[in-house]
Design a protein around this nucleic acid. Structure first.
Length: 493
RNA sequence: GGCGACAUGGCCAAGUGGUAAGGCAAGGGACUGCAACUCCCUCAUCCCCGGUUCGAAUCCGGGUGUCGCCUCCA
């Protein structure tokens, strides 16, 4: 099966043909490290983590690069506000980024370049752009020179975002001030002259720092070459960031730059884009205080990456129920199969079909909802096989299904954790959401459960049912079994 | 103002020409003291209007609605 992907550049789903047989060069636009990441950032990382895993599963040797932007206006402003250095700020949030992404099971790229360690490449690229007549100098506010990219000099400008230059309404954004030093208001800074009190680097144009877009052109070309396979990021980067990256790289080099562009849709809240500026965002770590990372990851993969995805407690609760169910089944499977290290029977058709469908789904523009659907039948079949734990053929069947799910879990980064522990963790988080551990409410629940058990032992079922009604009202679900009575938070509505 | 995306059952979400995947919820059955859990079963003709076609959720035209981008954004 061959890989197809939607290329923003051509606006079409196209067959993927790598530049070099068997190899893929992949660049993902990372984050600006001045704050904790929110669910929107999580989506980028999770989505392209699955892309990267899929490419590997398809047999490609992947070079995966993702940058950190550690020089930026917002970083400088935040560091100043906090009274700390930019380095202290960025290194703290890089650590936090790793913490979040590790919890979400996003594998780390091979190369994670930072702006601060690529100044030579950036300066060289700017010099080349100037030399080739695509940029010009303008006097800086506090001495030195600003360098601007001359958009008019690059005929293809606008090809990625599909807009003519005159389409961009001057003043459509109130963030941008008219600047007479620019030849064209669409021109953007390659180098910004230093302002007092700001970090700066030396350059032929005076002290200053790079503009936002040049870093990614310089770092991607450095680590992947001037022509590489795939460049990814959020949809909001299409214009201007990626448009400018293309202009810079192609102005400076003879290469084609990225051949395929992948852009993921936004995470929304009440159908509005989650963003820092709107203030309607949830940080990853806040969400993970309430829901297991696998639940968040599952949720992020329930929609195709191109679509927008609405974030809500309802959606997380739905995901929570499903992920818990799967882990409970896997835990049961591991228990049942403890004495069956290897099946002897041939792989059943359901496994072969699911495996094929899974990879076909992922090969079809990384269709994760379809991939998850492909897993539904084997999961249901496993549950059914586990109904007869002593039955030999059922065990054999369960073994194969368990193995299939394991294999799939490694591509999706889902359902691969220790099942019993994960199920317990998910439930613990649900209890914590209902009320804090060790709280008075918890003690009250324990008392009611005990009282109900006493009533049942005395066959006073009327009393037992009254007590269960009270527990239900508290949001607690009761499960009676031969081993005794268990309680857990009510997860259904 | 320009450019673009989306609209599928109660909720979420696949499907881009051949007759609607999957998840959650809900209903029925088995199980249960009764329940819950679990297992089994059931549950849509695809925003509106017009067109193309033997045939359209899928293509074309026109509406309506929601959202995004137009140099802070993942």
């Amino acid at each position: 099966m061959s890989l197809r992907l939607t290329n923003t550049l051509t606006r079409q789903k196209e067959r993927f043909v790598p530049l070099h047989a068997g190899k893929v060069s992949l660049y993902v636009c990372g984050v600006t490290v001045y704050d904790y990441c929110h669910v929107g950032h999580a989506r980028v990382c999770v989505v392209f983590d699955v892309v990267q895993r899929t490419l590997r599963r398809l047999g490609y040797d992947v070079t995966y690069v993702r940058n950190f932007t550690d020089v930026d206006d917002k970083i400088i402003a935040r560091a100043h506000l906090n009274g700390e250095s930019c380095e202290a700020l960025t290194s703290r949030f890089i650590d936090a980024f790793y913490e979040d992404m590790d919890r979400l099971d996003c594998q780390r790229p091979q190369v994670e370049p930072r702006v601060t360690t690529h100044m030579d490449e950036i300066r060289t690229m700017i010099a080349e752009i100037i030399a080739r007549g695509h940029a010009y100098l303008a006097p800086g506010e506090f001495g030195g020179q600003d360098v601007y990219f001359d958009v008019r000099s690059f005929a293809e400008y606008g090809a990625l975002s599909g807009r003519a230059q005159e389409d961009n309404q001057d003043g459509a954004s109130d963030r941008v001030q008219h600047d007479d030093r620019k030849r064209n208001q669409a021109d953007f800074a390659l180098w910004k002259s230093a302002k007092p009190g700001e970090p700066f680097w030396t350059s032929p144009w005076g002290n200053g720092r790079p503009g936002w877009h040049i870093e990614c052109s310089a770092m991607s070309c450095k680590h992947l070459g001037t022509t590489f396979d795939i460049h990814c990021g959020g949809k909001d980067l299409v214009f201007p960031h990626h448009e400018n990256e293309i202009a810079q790289a192609r102005a400076a080099n003879d290469g084609q730059f990225a051949k395929h562009w992948l852009h993921n849709g936004f995470v929304t809240i009440d159908s509005e884009k989650m963003s820092k500026s709107l203030g309607n965002f949830f940080s990853i770590r806040d969400v993970l205080k309430r829901y297991h990372p696998q639940v968040l990851r599952y949720f992020l993969l329930t929609a195709h990456y191109l679509q927008q995805l609405n974030f809500s407690d309802k959606a997380l609760d739905d995901a929570n129920r499903r992920v818990l169910y799967v882990y409970e089944k896997l835990a049961l499977a591991d228990q049942v199969l403890v004495n069956l290290p290897q099946a002897r029977s041939p792989t059943p058709a359901v496994c072969l079909e699911a495996r094929a469908e899974l990879m076909e789904a992922l090969s079809d523009d990384f269709n994760t909802p379809r991939a998850l659907a492909a897993l539904s039948e084997p999961i249901a079949a496993l549950a059914k096989a586990l109904e007869k734990p002593k039955d030999q053929p059922s065990q054999e069947r369960a073994w194969h299904l368990r193995a299939l799910i394991q294999e799939a879990s490694e591509v999706l980064g889902l359902f691969h954790l220790d099942p019993a522990k994960t199920a317990a963790d998910i439930l613990q988080l649900a209890k914590d959401r209902l009320f804090p551990a060790g709280s008075e409410q918890e003690a009250e629940v324990e008392r009611l459960v005990q009282a109900r058990n006493d009533a049942r032992a005395a066959t006073d079922f009327a009393e037992a049912d009254v007590l269960r009604g009270k527990l239900t009202a508290l949001g607690v679900e009761i499960r009676d079994s031969r081993e005794g009575t268990q309680w857990r938070p009510l997860l259904s509505e």
